[in-house]
Structure formats: structure tokens, C-alpha cells
Design a protein around this nucleic acid. Structure first.
Lengths: 351, 351
DNA sequence: CTGTTAGCGCGTTCAC
DNA sequence: GTGAACGCGCTAACAG
């Protein structure tokens, strides 16, 4: 097993190639990068030498040190990736982001919040960072990024200094939906919220939990609901899924049930509807349900959810555009997106 | 705007911090990395100096050059990301992969195949690469990676030298499903395949298209079907979705229709069923449909798809484990996963 | 068109 | 416990 102690399996580098080709390292560099005037003959000699030495081209690590750019943009999500991937809105957003960054030749590095056991935000060679639905817990990391001169864009996150924000009208939009219910005569309204903590714990929606929550989007939507129904309560789901909505719905509809439910995502809303079906409660006759997101869910029929349609792909795309501008030295303005209220057939007048 | 021409906005580096703290750079380095004997007093002085200079810690780019590791694993998908994200199997696989790599502190860099306009596989500072469903078109890139000593793992990809493969029994599994249909007395069977080219073109399944296809998984599944029905034909879908299945189904069931359909994904299968419903064709009485993947689709009820359940998360996880082992200098063995045939209520005897 | 000179910012030897 | 020196692999300037 020590038989390779002698053969010095050291990889060829640019200098070695240059030496073999009989040119200077810088010339060889130009031959590879294509940028700069190099005679065809010289380039050919360099490439031949590279092939002979089995040299695969300049090392990206060294290039990124030298150039000060790695071509990598970090994306930090609050949840573990496996959770994040389950949410269609995250996927849509990543979609837009990847599209825009890919066009600019930038790769997307998936990271998780510090402490979640995942890759550390502080050790990756990135040119810029996108925070997705992150809490101010990230303050410290963000400061470190600023110190390195790495621009930071945040999508639906608590405001932080020197962070460009791409926002959604979560609060106002939810308030719109709530007013819709109010106008339909509903007063006994309950919430099914997205997770409030990184732990994704289910349970009753209490003031303590709201106060201690780090989930920006969830909290904004709660605020919006309270703008209309100040004392609204409800339950917290462990994720954005039909399954979770079903669990929450069963809990909520078991006893002393509300006449309307504001679910913080369409998947949750559909779950609540399923729970109602189970219990023989008719939607929208006996129970009105509103969602959020505006995703098309296969098999939701015959229900057409009353919901808030948010431009998820556009959010990601806007973040991507902003990043590209920031890296080019520009100063893009913050963006705010609005959700469109769409009335379906899952809400009706209270009886 | 030139008022900063004088203040030299150069970022502080470790040397500057060391100088201010009155220690040598190497000592300062140790103070940050924690690895090595440094007195508490010295460390404190270094950290104080760092704070004073607004120094955010060692530069990851330089670290990765020096250490020869960047902590980044590239994931190359054949499709544009927006396509890839729509496929639940890809998501599940990424899920498992991210989970395993995250635990090892490795970040996931999303890349696309060269030529797709996205970030280039060759320029990213990665420690290892995972190829997902990629064709041998990547041969050249893979060679370049090998030259750099970057280990490559491929999930469901054409075999390439020195690439560790994590495979799925696509062919055998499909053959199992086909035999099931055969035993039910079906002989007029048609295929609805996943895309065969990066362009995602719909159309009839022709020999030319199969021959020219770069899609490994699709082709393997076609082979499996042909092991049982040698002359089976069908149509090519433009993606893995209910919508696409619906389009394919309409086409296939319009005239001269088969008694059974082998769809290459559950989403496609469900779309075919929807098309049948539209046309008043009963499933499974008039038409048998089998899928692939074993995803739970919301709203598929009352259908319980006859399908092949594949361990998607496990595939990703296995790739992650393999990567970690490879980076640790080990030589993990290739893995082959098998799909489980699950009989639902969408297949019945031919009439 | 090509060569020379300097680093990029850091980590790691090895001495002391 | 700390410092000095060197080099990771490459490329931006300039000089010729």
C-alpha cells in the first residue's frame, strides 16, 4: 500500500505544461482561457503538452482565488433541504433563481442555516448569497458575509441592514382574504399556520409561540389575519403538505369548530378540506377555507381553492437578476411582489 | 465618485490582522482554525484585532486552494433545473443526497450539462461530482474531472469508465410490469415514455429517436418493455407530469387504441387515465395502465396505480455515502437498487 | 505575440 | 507556544 510513495502522484499544473511546451506560464494560461492574443501554433503546442501530461485545464480553486470570483451563489434555506424541497413554492422560486443565475453562468450552492448540521455558510467560496425565508438569527453570518464584501439578497426575510430584500405582501394579502371571509359573515375563523420554529413542531397557536417564532413568512401572514380578526387562534402545522393540513383540520374541526379556516398554504388548505370531508362537513356550505400560494394541485377537484396567488417564480427570478446586478457593481432596488386574491368555490357566506 | 481613490478599500486579510495583533500570520491562522496550540491570550488578541479591522475570518477561496478541498459537491442534471425540479423522483433523490452530504458538511452545487447555457461543469471548484441521469455526452467533461482527481458518481447513467454507478433496475422492472400485462392477456400494448432528448420534444416513438436518444433511463425502460413486447410502440412525452400524460393519452387513445399502456412514470400514467376518462374509456376494464416510481399522488383516487416502486431517496443517499467514502480515500462498491412491483387497481385482464 | 515579475490569502512545515 | 519561510496554482500587469 506504500507502493505509491515513490511515484509522486502529483498532478500536473499549468507551470509543468508550460515548461513542456516551452512557453511561459502566463502564455499557457492565455492559451487555456482564450482571452488574449496567442498564436495558433503556440496554443497548439500548449494543448499538446497538456494532453501529454494528462492535464485537465486550470484548477478552478486557484482561479477563484486569483480572480476573486468563484462563480458560485449560495442559497440558504431555513429548513433542511428535504423539507424545503417538499414545498412547491420553494421549488418554483429556485426554478426562477436557477434560470436567471444559470444564464449568467453562476452555479447554485444549496446551504442550510448554521447549526442545522449542514454545510456551514461561512466556509463556502461564494460570490453572493440568497437568503430564503430566513430569520434574523442569521444576523451574525450576514455580518461576516458583508465583511467579505459578499452581497446578500433576501427573499421574504426579516429586514436586515445592507441586505437587498425581495418581498411579498404576505400580511396585506392575508388581510385581504380575511376581509373576504369577514364580508361573508364569518366571525369564528381559525388559522392553520406553516411551521413557526425550525423544529417543525405541531400544536396550538399560542402567543408565546408566535413571539418566539423565527419564521418570517408565517408570522407576517398571522399578522395579516389579525389585522382583521384580532383574536384569531388556530393550530400550527409541521410543514406545507396535504397530510399536515389533514392533521390540522382534524384537530381544528373536532369540537367547537370554526365556520372558516385560513390556511397558510394551498396544500394545507386542501388537507383541511379533506378533514372536513372525513367529518361530513361540507365545503363551502358548512366551512369556508382559504389557502395561499395559488398552486395547481392535481386532484383538488371539484374544489377550486379560494386563495392568494403569489408569483413564486418571479420572486426567484428577481433575486437572480438582483444578484447579477450586484456582482456587476450595480445597486439594484428592492422589489416587492404582490399576491393576487382569487376567489374559488371553497368560501361561501356563513350560515 | 473618486473620493475613495485614496482610502484604499482593500479588505483586511489574515496578515493584516496578525500584524495588528503583533503575532505572526501562522499564529493568527491557528487562532482562527482552532487547530493547534495557541494560548488563550494570543487568541484573544488576534480576535480583537480582527474585530477592529472588521475582518470576517479566513477567505474560503484561499482556504480551498491551500487545502485542496472546497467542501462542494457538484450535481449535474441533464435537464434545465426547472425541468428537473418538476420531477418528484429527482426531488426525492436530491433529498437523500443532500441529507447525506449535509451531514458531512458538504454543500450541493447545482449544475447543468454543458451547452445548456448554464454554469459550466468545468469551472466550478468542486471536490466531487454526482451525475444524475446523464448521457455519455458528458464523456469529455468526465475525463477532465478525472484528470483533476475529482471522483465521479453517476445515478442511473450510461456506464463510463472510472465512474461509480448507483443504478436502478429500470429494464428488469419494466419487463416485470410488461409480463404482468402479458399474463393478463394483453397484446396490444403501447408506451408513454419520458423525454428522449434534451429538447423534450413530443411525438411518436420511432426507432430513429430511440437510437439517437441520450436519455439513459427512458431507453432502459423501453428495452425492458421490448423484452416482453418486442415491437411495442407508443409516444414520447415532453416531461414527467400529469399534463403530459394527458396529452400523450389523448393521442394514443384516439384511434386504434391499445388495451394497455406502460407509462414511464406515475404522473404520466395518471395523465393517461385522465385521458381515458375524458374519452369514456374505463380503467382498468377497457384499458390497463401501469406507471413507474411509486409516488403518492394527491387526488389519484379512486385509482391505486399498478406501478414499480423505486427507492428514490435511497438512491440519493447511496450516492451521498459513496461520495463521502471516496473523498475519504475509500473505494466504495457500485450499488444497484431494485424497484418493487406493486399491483394496484389500474390493470385487469384484457377482454 | 510572448516572457517576466509579482502577488492573490492562506496553511503548513520546521525550527526556535 | 510562537515565528519564518515557502508554496498551493494561477493570472494581471507590464515589458519586450
Amino acid at each position: 500500500m506504500e507502493d505509491r510513495a515513490s511515484d509522486k502522484p502529483t498532478r500536473p499544473n499549468l507551470a509543468a505544461v508550460a515548461a513542456l511546451a516551452g512557453v511561459s506560464p502566463s502564455t499557457a494560461s492565455l492559451a487555456f482561457s482564450g482571452a488574449g492574443p496567442v498564436s495558433d501554433a503556440t496554443r497548439a503546442r500548449v494543448l499538446a503538452a497538456a494532453e501529454q501530461l494528462n492535464y485537465g485545464g486550470p484548477d478552478p480553486r486557484a482561479q477563484s482565488l486569483r480572480r476573486g470570483r468563484s462563480g458560485i451563489v449560495g442559497v440558504v434555506m431555513e429548513d433542511r433541504l428535504r423539507e424545503a424541497f417538499r414545498d412547491p413554492m420553494n421549488i418554483a422560486m429556485l426554478d426562477g433563481l436557477a434560470d436567471e443565475l444559470g444564464t449568467a453562468g453562476l452555479g447554485l450552492l444549496l446551504l442550510t442555516e448554521p447549526g442545522s448540521g449542514g454545510p456551514e455558510l461561512s466556509v463556502a467560496p461564494m460570490d453572493a448569497v440568497v437568503l430564503v425565508g430566513c430569520s434574523t438569527q442569521l444576523d451574525k453570518s450576514v455580518v461576516a458575509l458583508h465583511q467579505r464584501g459578499i452581497p446578500v439578497v433576501a427573499i421574504e426575510a426579516e429586514h436586515m441592514p445592507d441586505v437587498l430584500s425581495i418581498d411579498l405582501d404576505n400580511r396585506d394579502a392575508t388581510a385581504t382574504a380575511a376581509r373576504h371571509l369577514q364580508q361573508l359573515g364569518h366571525s369564528r375563523v381559525a388559522l392553520v399556520t406553516l411551521p413557526l420554529e425550525p423544529t417543525h413542531a405541531r400544536g396550538e397557536l399560542t402567543e408565546e409561540r408566535i413571539a418566539g417564532s423565527t419564521a418570517f413568512t408565517s408570522k407576517e401572514r398571522i399578522r395579516g389575519a389579525r389585522d382583521v380578526f384580532p383574536s384569531i387562534g388556530g393550530v400550527v402545522a409541521a410543514g406545507s403538505s396535504v397530510e399536515e393540513g389533514l392533521i390540522a383540520g382534524r384537530e381544528l374541526l373536532a369540537a367547537d369548530r370554526p365556520t372558516a379556516v385560513i390556511a397558510q398554504s394551498d396544500l394545507l388548505a386542501l388537507g383541511v378540506i379533506r378533514a372536513a370531508e372525513e367529518l361530513g362537513i361540507r365545503v363551502p356550505d358548512d366551512l369556508s377555507v382559504v389557502g395561499f400560494d395559488g398552486v395547481r394541485i392535481e386532484g383538488a377537484a371539484p374544489y377550486e381553492l379560494t386563495t392568494l396567488v403569489q408569483p413564486a417564480v418571479e420572486k426567484g427570478r428577481a433575486a437572480g437578476v438582483a444578484i447579477v446586478e450586484l456582482l456587476a457593481g450595480g445597486s439594484p432596488a428592492p422589489r416587492g411582489f404582490t399576491s393576487e386574491f382569487r376567489v374559488g368555490n371553497t368560501t361561501a357566506a356563513a350560515r
